[in-house]
């Protein structure tokens, strides 16, 4: 048993190392209470719907969302817009389709099965329109950044004047949560920028939280199912483990009588 503890100790030490090494390189992000954290975490539907609005009105003019489809807006575990709402959202965008019988491409209103329309035709066009910087696709952005959702939430609120001695080129902004502190996106949020239909006060903090929640969902659309299934799976495994443990005790008790 002593040996076991020694191994355990070393493992904990190792894991501790790993976490401390991760902690060392990151700044302290702004904290907020996320409804989707923890083993029973769920998304806040209203926040997702508001977050979609922020994405749509603020982010989507530069940032694409290419792995998301309009139908996802209806799906369970997401913003859960009604079918009519989602259809109306989709129909407000034009997508290129074709070729038609004459061999020509044509524009038509988007349907639920279409992917989110991209602001730019391709990456090069996006760079050209944004001073050489490519606004990253936002679908899995939360998972593509070490700080995750906290990082996005903080970054949106992290703009400030550069400290003395830091000079910024044209089109470069200072953000205390950005890696290297220099970011090519200007501060996008200001109080009252969007008008929430549910009457929520659109403060910068509120919008940052809503859109971060929305981005968490676009990155992990099955998070709620995963949490629910995980709980069931682990409870099941524990029950079976207990049963197997007692079966094992019973079976091995035969050896004792033999010995």
């Amino acid at each position: 048993m002593k040996k076991f503890y020694r191994v355990l100790f070393l493992l904990i030490l190792f894991v501790g190392f790993q976490f401390s090494s991760k902690a060392a390189e990151k700044v302290e992000y702004l904290k907020t209470d996320w409804s989707f954290k923890g083993p029973f975490g769920k998304f806040d539907r209203a926040a997702l719907q508001r977050g979609y609005q922020v994405y749509q009105e603020v982010c989507s003019s530069c940032h694409s969302m290419k792995y998301l489809s309009y139908r996802n807006l209806v799906e369970k575990g997401g913003p859960e817009f009604s079918l009519e709402q989602a259809k109306a959202i989709a129909a407000s965008f034009e997508v290129k389709d074709g070729p038609n019988a004459d061999g020509e491409m044509f524009m038509r209103p988007a349907r639920l099965s279409d992917k989110f329309v991209m602001p730019y035709e391709n990456e090069k066009a996006a760079q050209a329109a944004n001073g050489g910087a490519y606004p990253p696709d936002m679908t899995v952005l939360v998972k593509a950044r070490g700080g995750g959702v906290d990082y996005i939430y903080s970054l949106l609120q992290g703009y400030e004047d550069p400290p003395v001695g830091v000079s910024l080129d044209d089109g470069v902004y200072y953000n205390k949560y950005m890696y290297g502190n220099k970011i090519k996106m200007s501060n996008q949020l200001s109080d009252g920028l969007v008008e929430y239909s549910d009457g929520t006060n659109a403060s910068v903090e509120q919008m940052a939280k809503d859109v971060s929640t929305f981005l968490m969902w676009t990155a992990e659309p099955h998070l709620e199912t995963r949490h629910r299934m995980g709980f069931k799976a682990i409870v099941y495994l524990i029950i079976l483990t207990v049963l197997v443990y007692f079966s094992m005790k019973r079976i091995w008790s035969r050896v004792k009588t033999e010995v």
Binding site: P39, G230, I234, T241
Partner: peptide, 14 residues
Amino acid sequence: LLMFMIVFAFFVFY
């Protein structure tokens, strides 16, 4: 194996 699977499941689901 079941003990191992509990750890495994924790990683996969959480």
